[in-house]
C-alpha cells in the first residue's frame, strides 16, 4: 500500500500542474522540466503557423518568457498544457499583429504548390508525411491552427474549445471542415508531386 502511495506521490511530483505550481511559488528551476517536455510540440505548432524555423524558435522562447512573467496567474485548476497553448496562441497572434501580416493574405497556395521547400515537411522522412505536411502548409491559417492544436493538444477538443473560446462541438465542426479541405489539397499535391 505504501509503495503504491509513494508511486502516486512520485507521479504527482512530476505532473505538469505540480511543476508549474512550484514555478509559481518561487522555484523557477522546475520550468526546465516543462520546457524539456513541451519544447518540441510548441516548436511544431509555431513552425506550422509561421512557416519559419528560426522565428518558430523565437516564439517558443517568448512563450516560456511569458509563462515565467505571468506565473502568478497560473491557478492550477485546469490543464497546464491548455494554459500553455493559450499563451502560445497569444504569442503567435501578437507576432502577426506586430508584423501586420497574415501569411494567407499574401500567399495563394496554388501559386506556391511547386515550391520545393516546405518548413513542416523538411524533417519528414516518409513521402506520404512530406506530402501531407506540404498540404497542411497550404491550408488557410485558421484551419491550419485548429489541426495543429488538435495534433499537439492530443485531440482534447473540450480543452481546445477553452483556448479558442468556443464549445467542444464547435471545435469538432472546425476540425471536420479543416480535414475536408486538407483532403482536397492533399489530392492536388499528390497529383503534382
Amino acid at each position: 500500500m505504501r509503495s503504491f502511495l509513494n508511486e502516486q506521490q512520485h507521479l504527482e511530483a512530476l505532473s505538469d500542474n505540480y511543476l508549474m505550481a512550484k514555478v509559481r511559488d518561487g522555484d523557477p528551476d522546475k520550468l526546465g522540466l516543462l520546457y524539456e517536455r513541451y519544447k518540441r510540440p510548441l516548436l511544431g505548432f509555431f513552425i506550422g503557423m509561421v512557416r519559419d524555423r528560426d522565428l518558430g524558435e523565437d516564439l517558443v522562447q517568448n512563450t516560456f518568457v511569458r509563462i515565467l512573467k505571468y506565473r502568478h496567474l497560473f491557478r492550477g485548476d485546469g490543464d497546464f498544457r491548455t494554459w500553455m497553448f493559450h499563451i502560445a496562441r497569444n504569442v503567435k497572434n501578437d507576432h502577426f499583429r506586430k508584423n501586420k501580416l497574415s501569411l494567407d493574405k499574401i500567399e495563394k497556395w496554388e501559386e506556391k504548390i511547386e515550391e520545393p521547400e516546405s518548413k513542416i515537411a523538411e524533417w519528414q522522412s516518409e513521402d506520404e508525411h512530406r506530402m501531407l505536411a506540404v498540404a497542411l502548409e497550404k491550408l488557410p491559417e485558421e484551419k491550419r491552427e485548429i489541426l495543429l492544436l488538435s495534433k499537439y493538444h492530443e485531440k482534447k477538443y473540450k480543452e481546445i474549445g477553452e483556448i479558442l473560446g468556443c464549445s467542444e462541438g464547435a471545435v469538432k465542426v472546425k476540425v471536420f471542415r479543416a480535414l475536408q479541405e486538407l483532403k482536397v489539397i492533399y489530392q492536388q499535391v499528390e497529383k503534382l508531386m
Partner: peptide
C-alpha cells in the same frame, strides 16, 4: 497521418537561450 508527422528537433541555440533566461 497528421498524428504521425514527427515533431521538429529543437536547436542547441534555443536550449542555451532558454537556460540562460532561467
Amino acid at each position: 497521418s497528421l498524428e504521425k508527422i514527427s515533431e521538429p528537433i529543437v536547436s542547441q541555440d534555443l536550449d542555451s537561450r532558454f537556460y540562460e533566461m532561467l
